[in-house]
């Protein structure tokens, strides 16, 4: 059985199913992080004057800046991998997708060093409300990175990308959808970076 509009667009909406689906999913993600951001604001307003800034100064800004740049780069490589598929250049796709995965790994490794140095200095989620929301937000964001990596690794390996050889348009579509999710993860970090590290 074939579900209509899996690949081609429904004329009335100009969208295919997965494009609409991923945006509805991202809408729910906006509300998930929205709930946590609102908790952040709530706790910040309730905290003693200067408490958040004091605990925020314990974080490592240079490492986080580097991480921001790494994540932005991965956003560019993932869209380049999609553009390569559009240009029918499968080898380039594999290169750019590999680079995306590399960037994601670097991001997680840097995050790992950040976490362990916090633990090393005796800062745990229970130390203060700032540390609690810091670990919760970055931890959940890290889980999103890992989720995206699992999907993209699948599309990078032969098991996932064999669809390219039978139905290139469908495969390109999948990469576009995975890319949209990845940009969203990047977008969340763009807000996490200033509110946790800089303010």
């Amino acid at each position: 059985m074939q579900i209509p509009y899996t690949i081609e667009e429904r004329p009335e909406t100009g969208l295919n199913n997965s494009k609409l689906g991923i945006w509805v999913f991202l809408a729910s993600e906006v509300m998930l992080f929205g709930g946590l951001f609102s908790a952040y604001v709530f706790l910040r307003l309730a905290a003693p004057e200067g408490d958040f800034a004091y605990w925020g100064s314990k974080l490592n800004v240079p490492l986080a800046t580097l991480n921001t740049l790494v994540l932005i780069s991965s956003s560019v490589t993932v869209i380049m991998s999609w553009a390569s598929l559009k240009l029918k250049d499968f080898e380039k796709y594999k290169l750019y997708m590999g680079l995306t995965l590399l960037c994601a790994t670097i991001f997680l490794v840097i995050k790992y060093f950040e976490y362990t140095s916090k633990f090393h200095h005796g800062y745990y989620p229970s130390s203060s409300n700032f540390m609690a929301i810091y670990f919760t937000l970055t931890g959940l964001h890290g889980l999103h990175i890992i989720g995206g990596m699992i999907v993209m690794t699948y599309f990078w390996l032969p098991a996932g990308n064999k669809l390219w050889h039978t139905d290139p348009e469908h495969f390109t579509n999948r990469i576009e959808i995975a890319g949209l999710y990845w940009h969203f993860v990047d977008l969340v970090w763009i807000f996490l970076f200033p509110i946790l590290y800089l303010l």
Partner: peptide
Amino acid sequence: FFLVCMFLPL
């Protein structure tokens, strides 16, 4: 609705 959610702590 995101704004409503942010309105909540304020």
